[in-house]
Design a protein around this nucleic acid. Structure first.
Lengths: 140, 140
DNA sequence: GGGGCATGTGAGAACTGTTGTCGACTGACC
DNA sequence: GGTCAGTCGACAACAGTTCTCACATGCCCC
């Protein structure tokens, strides 16, 4: 039996309010700052449950930290500003087809792929800013 | 001044011998097993230096561990078997163009992207095997 | 070839993000 | 309201990585 608890709903609500990707630690800190007494373990559990339910998408930063974002259910990719963390969902049927075809040509089955695009958004390009979300160590 | 040390050359040599992706810990264990007295810190330093030099490519597993592989210099992506860790380099000019175009349409500049394809290779598909290299938590 | 010194090394501590543990709590079903 | 499995929260434990610091050594200059 899966319960609807106050804590889980609260974590869910936080992602409703937030734009872009945020780490579990960040969500925890934000909730504690807002007066919520939720534990860090609970935030991790709630976030993972939401990922399992398909409510959130998770990616890993270059630093190895998992970050999360409320996403649409359909398959898509992310265009992430490495300066402000702003995220756009983008769809690429071309890429899906290409990935499936290439995998098939090499005899691979049960294929999934990860694709994230990192760049500097127009707004941040004008004003140099710090780097909350790291891009890839190397193009690959 | 960057020195040519025995240790750095040894780490480099290990990747010459290895196929597929391997973690720093794994390389360290392998070198120790071979009688080398290299320290773990040194392996991390050497590996990062090689990544900086473009000699190695690094990606993160879903578990957050950084894994490395000797790669060709040109831009490419990886097709990784999640059962045996076998890796194929694949090139996708279609994808490169798509990523640049999409980023451009959203006003993003200085764009880089990560793309990894995870699947089960033909050989492993026949024989169920354990999972040394995790795929993505969710397609994205 | 030898001296000097900046750079690299290695062992282990420290740090960070994440997961596991355990007693207490609580929401759903009766 | 009673029962009990699922959940909570504090904290310990864990894994991967980075930092520290005393010591070693490769390279430049003579």
């Amino acid at each position: 039996m899966i319960r609807n608890t106050r804590q889980r709903a609260a974590v869910n609500a936080v992602f409703d309010e937030l734009e872009g990707f945020h780490s579990a630690q960040e969500v925890h800190a934000r909730m504690r700052a807002a007066g919520d007494t939720i534990g860090l373990s609970t935030v991790y559990r709630a976030v993972q449950a939401l990922v399992d339910d398909g409510e959130l998408d998770s990616i890993r930063t270059d630093a190895g930290e998992a970050i999360y974002r409320r996403c649409s259910a359909r398959h898509h990719h992310h265009l992430v500003c490495r300066a402000c963390g702003r995220t756009e969902e983008v769809e690429g049927p071309t890429v899906e087809r290409w990935a499936d075809r290439v995998a098939g040509e090499h005899g691979f089955v049960d294929v999934k792929h990860t694709l994230e695009i990192f760049g500097t958004c127009a707004a941040c390009h004008a004003t140099a800013a710090p780097t909350p979300v790291d891009g890839p160590a190397r193009q690959g």
